[in-house]
Design a protein around this nucleic acid. Structure first.
Lengths: 151, 151
DNA sequence: TGTCTAATGTCAAACGTTTGATACTGACGT
DNA sequence: ACGTCAGTATCAAACGTTTGACATTAGACA
């Protein structure tokens, strides 16, 4: 037989779980983006708003870790959202040059509107899969996170 | 009761399926990127190589659709990979200024090495979940794609 | 045959993010 | 009390991608 120390790349390499994961994520992200565009909001803006909403008073650097982006990217987003009056930067009580991030009333209003349309996508998925499989999907996805985190 | 025409954004909004999907995709993508960096290859390069490998002779615009990016992004990637001698652009037999994309032998070699480490991530997931749940996950993800595509 | 349309490829500019480097602040230890 | 260190914020530059626009080409239809 011929030398095959290097096994060839199979034609079914695109049918992997990780590719299905990527396709699904792209499709969901596109669906969110499409719905949010009508409200003049980007997905990254929505992600920032809902994260600050669920945990008010976060520092920019800490927020960057949660969003999986760099602190500079957060600063850029905050600057824009602050210009729209949806986010405000308060001075940290103990550390002076650290700034706590909070939502303004306008920010909460914008988030409510955005979350309504994003929740539609979530509901769309649950309707198609059923409640139990959807929950199972969520559990499997969390397991995937765990599996690839520690190596 | 108070006015609640606008329902508040629940604190459990981050526990949705779509967020678990995003977290898992980011984690998997990060794992791939980390392993591919050692080979001096970006995830986008790997994605292009394996797509061209599975379907040789694709045009740039068609390839862009499969990768969910713009034709310019593909042109940029192809230019770089062509500079490395991993991809070549042949003239389409019928259409003159359309260029078929093919892998060179060096490209196939690089793809083999890259695919080996990417397959490790896939195996890592299958080991953690088990074969049957992994396949079920893949099926559920495909259902998610279908669910959000048509609206 | 001539024109129209759809599709491809490429150029230039704008955008958002990352990378690298710097300044500042508060806590901790010897 | 003082120096060291970790964490935060900000600036400048580079990178990769998208957006918009344009030239080219082949097939379709009259």
């Amino acid at each position: 037989m011929t030398r095959n120390e290097e096994e060839p790349v199979g034609p079914d390499a695109l049918d992997r779980v990780t590719w299905a994961l990527r396709r699904a994520e792209l499709a969901v992200q596109a669906a969110k983006e499409q719905r949010l565009r009508a409200l003049g909001m980007a997905v990254s803006h929505y992600a920032l708003l809902i994260t600050v909403h669920s945990q008010p008073g976060l520092a920019g650097a800490e927020l960057a870790r949660r969003l999986n982006v760099t602190p500079q990217a957060v600063a850029s987003l905050v600057a824009r959202l602050e210009g729209r009056g949806q986010v405000e930067r308060r001075e940290h009580p103990r550390h002076r040059h650290i700034q706590e991030l909070h939502l303004t009333e306008a920010g909460r209003e914008a988030l409510r509107a955005a979350d309504a349309v994003v929740a539609e996508v979530e509901q769309q998925i649950k309707d198609a899969l059923g409640a139990a499989p959807a929950e199972q999907l969520r559990a499997l996805l969390d397991e995937v996170c765990e599996a690839v985190r520690e190596d």
